[in-house]
Design a protein around this nucleic acid. Structure first.
Lengths: 141, 141
DNA sequence: CTATTATAATAGAATTATTCCAAGCTAAGA
DNA sequence: TCTTAGCTTGGAATAATTCTATTATAATAG
């Protein structure tokens, strides 16, 4: 908690109780929550918090590069409090998302027609698959 | 047009005028349109078509593997009538999306903790960058 | 420690994207 | 040509996200 406060103190990011609750929930969280997930969790301890505050806060964090917006799930946005570039895999059955910390950049060369047209600034790899739990469940049914 | 008809004829996919218009618009289209784009275009010739029909049709095509749903743009879904697995690059300034036809699969190995947990079935690489037009525009302003 | 002020939080409305539904319509096969 | 499963439609419903106007408050200066 101290760590969080020190990270934002005096950096033009006002630390309100709501924001602290959100930051605390996200700290080290690898569940890739949606805005809804964050809202439901924060509400338990801070019942008057509004959805707008959750959205405002994740936007502010995203704009500061403290948070990544994950597009792997076509249904909704997920958030990842680890801002280092990395990749994701989603279970197409249950939606579970895990992190993959490998830098594939050197292998991800684009063809010439693309590099002529675009200055490439980044990449993100989405993997799709079926997780162990879902495989087990499918075999049983 | 004949090609389209032959592709769906007698395959349990009823070819209505609305669907033909949508299929015709998508045929060979590399613009990665959104549902809105498709709707606006179809309406020009077929003014009574409804949004629900556009969504129903792209869903039916997606379920048949004739169409890919693209998640590269956090703002909205785009559709790609080329169902072969391939990758995309988006200009972070203007939103333009281009195709990249390289199979990176052999380079995209996942770490052991992931392959223990997931049966990996596919991958998709999103590249981000700035297109030539936007770079020119930025230099001038 | 207090006052000031810029910024954040709030409720609720608005917007946008997408899906659902019930009723009528029609393409395609018999 | 008839039949019917499957499609189309407008409009309502739902869901996700953003906006707005007002109130509250964290941070800084004094």
């Amino acid at each position: 908690m101290e760590k969080i406060i020190n990270r934002y103190k005096g950096k033009g990011f006002k630390l309100t109780p709501q924001r602290l609750a959100i930051l605390h929930y996200l700290e080290g969280n690898t569940d890739h929550p949606t805005a809804e997930d964050i809202y439901q969790e924060i509400r338990k301890k801070n019942p008057t918090v509004s959805f707008a505050t959750v959205y405002n806060t994740v936007q502010a964090l995203r704009d500061r590069g403290e948070l990544l917006e994950i597009t792997i799930d076509p249904e909704r946005k997920h958030f990842d409090p680890n801002p280092q570039p990395h990749h994701h895999i989603m279970c197409t059955n249950c939606g579970k998302i895990d992190d993959i910390f490998i830098d594939y950049s050197s292998a991800l060369k684009v063809p010439e027609n693309i590099s002529d047209e675009f200055q490439v600034l980044g990449n993100h790899v989405d993997f799709y698959g079926v997780c162990k739990g879902c495989r087990a469940r499918k075999t049983n049914n």
